[in-house]
Every structure is written in C-alpha cells, then in structure tokens.
Nucleic acid binder design. Structure first.
Lengths: 211, 211, 211, 211
DNA sequence: CATGAATGAGCCTTCATTCAT
DNA sequence: GATGAATGAAGGCTCATTCAT
C-alpha cells in the first residue's frame, strides 16, 4: 500500500523528464517511464490524464516559471543592466531545470496544437519582454538602432542553445553547460556582446565603468 | 510501368521529410509516410533497410552537403570576408533544404548512437571550419581576442535557429525564414554583427570600404 | 468480470497446443492462436513474453513432468519390472498430454538454442534413467549384454513414435494411439519385447510367472 | 546472364534442404534460401511454383526413391533375409539423403493436405512392403506370431529415428548417425533384434548359420 | 491510492509472390 | 533464364489506456 508520501507522482515526473531528454517525447513510452520510476503505468493516466497530459504539464510548468524568472517589475535601471539581468535570470532558471529545458526546447519545434498554444502565449510574452527592454534602450539612446526582431532572434539563440543541445557544447567544445563555471563565463561573454555590439560607442566606456 | 522512373524512392524521401518536420521522427510512422507518398510501406525497408536507415540516410546526406557548402578551399581573402561568405553559404544551403534542416537540427539534440556518430564527425568539422577562420582573424588582428568557443556557439545559434524553429520566426516575429528576403536581411544583420562585435574598431571602416 | 477466473491464460495455452499440433510452431501465428482462444493477441506477450516464451513454457513444463513421471525412487524390484513400469509411465504421461507431446517431439528435432538447452537437460536425464535400469539389469544378468545406446534409441523410438505421429498410426494402421485400448496392447507388446529380446532365456519364464 | 549450367535450380534445392533441416519448412523464408544460394527469390516461384511447390518437390522425390529402395522384386529368399535387406536399404538410402530425410520425417507429422496425400500413398506402400515380408515370415513359420502392426510401428521407429533426430543420437549418445560406422553397427543390432525377437527360437540358430 | 488483467489500435518488418524488363 | 522493383497481406510485438478490484 503506497501513499503519495513517497512521491509517486514526483517519481513519474522525474523519470519522464530524464527519458524525454534522451529519447524525445514520442520516442518514450509510458511503460518506459513507469519502469524507471518503479510505478504502475495506469497511474500516468490517473495523475495526468494520459501521456499528452504529462507533456502538457511539464511544458506549461516550465514556461510558467520561466516567464516569472525573466519578467521584472522594477524597470528603473538602465536598459543595458536590465537586459543583462534578464539574460542572467533566463540562464540560471534554465540551469536549475536544464533537464526539462532541453526537451521542452526540442519539443517546441514540432507542429502540435499544444506547441502552437504554448508558443502563442509564452514565447509571445518572452518576445515582449525583450522587446520592451530593447525599445527602451534604443529610445534612451543606450542601444544603437538595429532591427529588433533580429536581435531577439539572436538572443534567443544564445540563451537557448546551450540547454537545447548540451552534448554539442560538451563533446565539441568540452564545456559543461549546466555548471556554475560555464554560466558565469557565458554571462560575461554576453555582457561584452551587449556592450560592444548593442550599445552606442560612447555609452560603452560609461557602462563598463558603472558595472 | 514498374520502374523507378516515377521516382518511388524520391517520393518516399519527400514524404518522410515533410512529416518528420511536423511530427518528428519518432512521431511519424512508416504507414504515415507511405500513405502520403502513395507507396507501399514495405518499400522503406526495401530501400533504406528500415525506418532507422531512412533517418540515417537523410541526416548524413544533409550534413555531407552542408559541410561541402561551408568549406572553402580559397582562403586567401580577409578572415572577415571569409566568415561572411561561410555564413552566407550555411544559410543558403539550409534555405535550399529548409525542410530537412529543421528536423535534422531537432533530431540531433537526442541521445542516439546515430546522433553521436553524426556529431563526432560533422559537427566536429563544422567547428573546425569556424575555428580556423576565427583563429586566422585573431592572428591577423582583424578580430578582437575573445573566447573562440563562445563565439562559435553564438554563431551556431544564429545560423541554426531560423531553420530549427521557423514557426517561432514566423508567428512571433512575422518573418519567413526560408524566403530570399529574410536571408538577405539576416546576412546583412550578421555582417554588422561581425563588423561591430568581432572586428577591431579601426578595421571596421576599412572592411566596410573593401566590401 | 476481468479476472483470470475464466482462465484466459489457460485458454491461450490450449489453443496454442492444438494449433502447434496441426501446423507446427512456426506455422502458427499469435493471431491464429488468439482468435481460437477468443482472446486479445497482446496477451501472449503479456503472459509469456512473446511467442518464443510460450513455446518455451510448453516445452519445459512438458518435459519437467515427463521426467517426474519416469523417475522412480523405488528401484528395489527387478530391472525388468522397473523397465516395464517406466515405459508404462512414459506412455501414460504422454497419453495424458498427447496433444503437447506431439508438437514437442516434433519441435525438438529442430536446431534452436531452446532445443539444445532442452535436450542437454531433459533428454540427457531421460537417457540416464534408462541407462541405470539397463545397466542394473545386465549386471544382475537379467538382461543380455547388448549395446545399451542402441537399446535406448530403440526404446525412445517405440515410446515416442505413437505420440509424434498419431496420424500414421491412425491412418495407416487404423489404431488410435491415445486410447486406453491402444496403450494397454502396446504395453503388452513392449513387455514381450523386453522378455524375449532383452531378457536372458531362463529369466523369461520366471519373470512371466512373477507378473 | 546466368544459365542453368551453373545449376541455379540445384543450388536452390541444396540451400532449401539445409535450411529446412535446421529451421523447419515454415521457419525458413524464401529470401533465406535464396540468399544462401545466391540466387534471385523470384526463381523459386519460377521453378517450383512457389514455396509450397518446393516442399512438395522435395518430399515426393524423397519418398519416390525411398520406395524404390525398399521394394524388391526378388522375394525368393527367407523372410528374415528379406527383412534385413529391406532395412539395410532403408538405412542406406536415408543415409545418402540424410539431410532431406530429417526434415521430411519431421514435416510429415503435421496436418497438411500435402502430408495426407504423401502418407496415403507412400507410407501406405511402405507399410505394405513390411506387411508382406512379415506375413510371409509368419506363414512360413520363420517368425513368431505377433501383432504385425506393432512390429511395423517398432520397425518404423527404429529405421526413422536416427535420421529424424540425429542431434539426439549425436549429443546424447555420442554416435554419428550418418556415418558408415554407425550404420554398420546399427544393422548388426537390428539383425540380432530380428533373430532374437521376431524369429522362432529354433529358426534362430539356423538363420545364424545361413548368414 | 494503487494494481494488474485486458483491450484495440498501431507499430515496424518480413513474407511470398508478381511482373515488366 | 534471370532480375529487381513493387505489392498486399501477415508477421510478432508494443502502444496508451481502461476498468474491476
């Protein structure tokens, strides 16, 4: 007689994540998950209303918190500092859930109804967050005028890729994406990118001084 | 007329690509593919030795040509020009095969044996190509000294994302990634990124002049 | 009521046996079996781990009990009586499972790994049983000295053939192998064979008297 | 362009036999056979009218010659000698085709239409051959009066088993059934069986003398 | 809450065979 | 005579899910 005290539900979630990571959602069977979690397969239907429900649960809870992490009420500071802070949050959040991040970023490239919904809510908002910061920066002449969409695309690529494709980072570049060490250096790199590429020349020295 | 003149094999390939794109490899069944191709399901095994073989065929042929596209024998010019040319080739090649590109970029984030093999050959070489260009640029003082691995990661993100996740580009940014129009502007954007971020300040005006 | 009370597993077993009998193992499909058992095809994998597992189950359980039937702890009596008793047990056991016996005897003539295992355990033991009896009989001068291996081969032929090939018995000799009537006469025949062929002359009358 | 000069048909036959032996008829695929024979699978249909036709061809040609071997026009001698000669022929014929013999003996235990036909012609005749000899022997008082059917069953078991189940002979008794050596000893054993079991006592010494 | 029997649909693959060449 | 592309049917098995317990 098992109660949820031993975290049956949690065990399913963890097993699912680690398998989705490696094999993808479609490539992973419920049996697969439940064997690893040492749990009865019927429970997935019971808890999440089926395999699809499990995916939905994982995706939305990931993005829900992701947005919370990158949205800031306090927008007083410089656009540059705000952007850096946002990227930092995005990276740290993903680091803390790097296992979910990976398969979510992958799964979201498919053409499912779920994906379209997720995209039209969360990714829309994500874009908005960056847009506001960049707009503000350009208005205040902190940032050079450049096509905002392209910048956001570039940002999303930079923020996303290390968690979508950690093997690449690991095996080709011999860096470990979800280690503190990597994150720190990566943020540093992104900061110089912001300063040298986004920011107006004169602002650069100032901002460096202010950091 | 029972001959390959009507391109049975080709029909399978095309159907597979378009379905893999939308549903992923695991999410697509052979029946699925062959219905769309209006062809007998046994042919997949006949031609490719199974579903896995079909994936392998698509992946390797994609990467094989991808590498051919980005490798240049003529490395006389400036590192900056070489880099731009390389990115242009990478983008145009992917544009020409944007349907394959998408699912290949997605599928390569899994942990399969096939993926490991592909990564350790093709992505290793891709890195090498960029590495040589960046190294040369830094040696010749065209480029600022910066951590090469991070630059390559950034580059790969920029070059890859529009084809891995075209919906995002399309629905969130209202741009169409595999249209001439997009590519042109995107290359332009990448060029200013190279000039303003990678290149030494003084070199910038010169290089702009020389282009 | 979805329980095993209605003997789902048993129904599968019975259907399998009767079909293996007629069509052989390879010639029988799981769908075939389950249609006849009025049961879902997935159950074969569920209960036996696949078609092969079903065969293995039937074979080993047949031989397991076969050996129990022909092994006797009480070996006090004459070798002749012991041999007759052993043959009687072998025949009666097979009669009680004549449907399994037939396809097991047939299937065991193939070159499978399963067959090799079965042979090296059960048939080895069967030989041993006969060997001990015959050896004892020869040592006690009940039996004439003759090549034991040949005798065992002959015995196995006699004990096996009516159940391996009942049609032959039925259609060519118009006898029905798994009827009490047949068995009784067959045992009688075997007894005279033992007495007249195996036993020393003088022992014959005695043993006939003692029976 | 291959002609039958290189024995395409023969290659198919040989490959089929050796595979039927090991895997049984149903367990062997045409592809299987033709790969081993290095021949195009379509040829089996072309030559034999399908897989079933191939089996039929092998079975009937085996039995056709088997009957020729055991039927003797010259029935002048003693029944004992005739029986021995018949058994010798049966054994030597099977030895010369031991590979076919094995799977034919196995396949004939199934319940196919082909099998029923074969049985009702060839095995009927085989029985007849033995019946005539035994009848003659009993009429001439060479043989003791005993149920003829049982004797024939016993004979068929003895003559058949070493070729139906050579592994058993080999692995359990460490004898090699299709070697000259085995056959010679086996015939010797059968002879003593005939003399001591079938023949009338007094006849025995005579017949030993006459041999 | 948790289980395991049971299901029906679907999976990928192999089958024997045909037919144009 | 021989090939290889192509087929439709069937192969064994796994799938996600349901339901009585």
């Amino acid at each position: 007689m098992k109660s949820d005290k031993d975290g049956t539900k949690q065990k399913v979630i963890e097993a699912a994540i680690s398998l989705f990571n490696v094999q993808g959602y479609s490539g992973t069977s419920i049996r697969n998950i439940c064997e690893r979690a040492d749990v009865n397969p019927a429970l997935v239907s019971y808890y999440f209303g089926g395999k699809k429900g499990l995916l939905e649960y994982l995706m939305t809870s990931f993005f829900e918190n992701y947005l919370k992490a990158i949205e800031h009420e306090n927008t007083n500071g410089s656009a540059r500092d705000l952007l850096i802070e946002t990227l930092r949050q995005a990276l740290y959040y993903q680091q803390s859930k790097h296992d979910i991040a990976r398969f979510v970023h992958r799964e979201i490239t498919l053409d499912t109804m779920l994906v379209r919904e997720v995209m039209s809510t969360y990714l829309m908002k994500e874009k908005h967050v960056y847009y506001e910061i960049l707009k503000k920066g350009m208005d205040r002449l902190e940032f050079k005028k450049q096509p905002i969409d392209f910048i956001i695309i570039q940002i999303r690529g930079m923020v996303t890729l290390p968690f979508l494709h950690p093997q690449y980072i690991r095996e080709v570049h011999h860096l470990i994406p979800h280690e503190e060490y990597f994150i720190l250096h990566y943020i540093e790199y992104l900061t110089t990118w912001i300063d040298q590429y986004l920011c107006e020349r004169q602002t650069k020295e100032e901002s460096l001084a202010s950091s």
